[in-house]
Simulated scan of single mutants.
Amino acid sequence: NNKGGASASRVQCLKGSLSCSSFNLQTMDASEFCFPEAFNSSCKKKVSLHSVNTLIYFGLSFMSLVTTALNLLVIISISHFRKLHTPTNFLLLSLAVSDFLVGLFMFFQIMVINGCWVLGDVLCVLYYVFSGVLTSASVGTMVLISLDRYLAICDPLRYSTKVTTKRVQICVSLCWICSVVYILVLLRDNFQQPGKFNSCSGECVVEIGFVENVADLILTFIISITVLVVLYVRVFVVALSQVQAMRSHIVAVKQKHPSKTNVKKSELKAAGILGVVVVAFVFCICPYYCVTLIGKSSLLNTSTMTFLLCLFYFNSCLNPLIYAFFYPWFRKAMRIIFTLEVLRSGSSGANIL
Rank of each mutant, 00 (worst) to 15 (best):
V279F: 13
T135E: 13
L184D: 05
D99R: 09
I110A: 10
L321S: 05
D155A: 11
F39T: 06
L101I: 03
L91A: 08
F210N: 13
D216C: 14
P87H: 01
Y288P: 00
L300A: 07
P194M: 11
S21F: 08
V185K: 14
V52F: 14
Q169P: 01
S64N: 06
N262R: 12
S22V: 12
N315Y: 13
P258S: 11
C290P: 00
I285S: 09
S17W: 06
D148Y: 13
L228Q: 09
L101F: 15
C43M: 07
G4T: 08
F130H: 02
S298P: 01
V251H: 10
G295D: 03
K46P: 01
F108P: 00
E203H: 00
G140Y: 08
F23M: 12
V163K: 04
V278R: 06
S138N: 12
D189I: 04
V129H: 03
S19F: 13
F307V: 14
T339L: 08
L147M: 11
S17K: 13
V168P: 02
R158N: 15
Y159L: 08
F312K: 09
V263W: 11
L73H: 11
L187S: 02
V253S: 14
W117H: 13
V97W: 15
A96G: 03
H80G: 01
Y127P: 00
D148V: 03
S201W: 03
S31Q: 08
